[in-house]
């Protein structure tokens, strides 16, 4: 059965493949400490590095499916997200997500992106589990993940050193049978 709604679309966002022309927005976001504070990125990113990353990006596949996130209404690029599946046997995907466009924070776009990404992971990539790690001080993100159904299952103490201090990292996951479609 083919769903009536595109598998790439939620209520607010659409996931699509990344394109080289996304570089300008990525360069702004990933040099913005308000965005990178909670990401693995800690050094400034050059246009050259960002460009060559996008130019050399292989086609999306089970091992790594990365997307740009745009608004459904007017196609504004607002972030990116990905699922990495390091070992197909375990059917476990690792989430990376960033809503880089700060004008779209706290308005449900992150939640809708996570729901759409998780649904794609379960229904199109046939995953059994999706997991992520989040900075313990990132209350907004933890709230989004809990809303989508992710369960906090562990705490990595003093896991990241950033801005002069160690921070804890929370491990969260959702299993396939726990995932609830967003009622329209």
């Amino acid at each position: 059965m083919i769903p009536t709604r595109s598998s790439m679309e939620g209520r607010l966002v659409r996931l699509r493949a990344r394109e080289p022309q996304d570089e300008a927005a990525f360069h702004v976001w990933f040099n913005d400490y308000a965005v990178t504070e909670f990401l693995a990125i800690r050094y400034p990113v050059s246009h050259l590095a960002e460009r060559s990353m996008l130019d050399s990006e292989p086609a999306l596949r089970h091992e790594r499916a990365m997307f740009s996130v745009e608004t459904l209404g007017d196609g504004v690029l607002i972030g990116n997200c990905e699922l990495r599946v390091p070992g197909a046997e375990n059917r476990c995907g690792n989430v990376g997500i960033a809503i880089g466009h700060t004008g779209y924070r706290d308005r449900g776009y992150g939640t809708d992106t996570m729901r759409t990404l998780s649904r794609f992971g379960f229904t199109m990539m046939n995953l059994h589990r999706i997991e992520l790690t989040v900075d313990a001080t990132n209350a907004r993100a933890r709230h989004v993940y809990r809303t989508v159904g992710f369960v906090e299952e562990g705490l990595l103490r003093d896991h990241r050193f950033i801005s002069g201090a160690y921070r804890d990292t929370v491990v969260m996951s959702i299993l396939r049978n726990e995932f609830q479609e967003d009622p329209l």
């Binding site: 089970h62 091992e63 599946v85 197909a88 199109m124 990539m125 046939n126």
Partner: peptide
């Protein structure tokens, strides 16, 4: 065991 499609297992 070859030609494995991980999505379809």
């Amino acid at each position: 065991l070859i030609n494995i499609r991980p999505e379809c297992r």
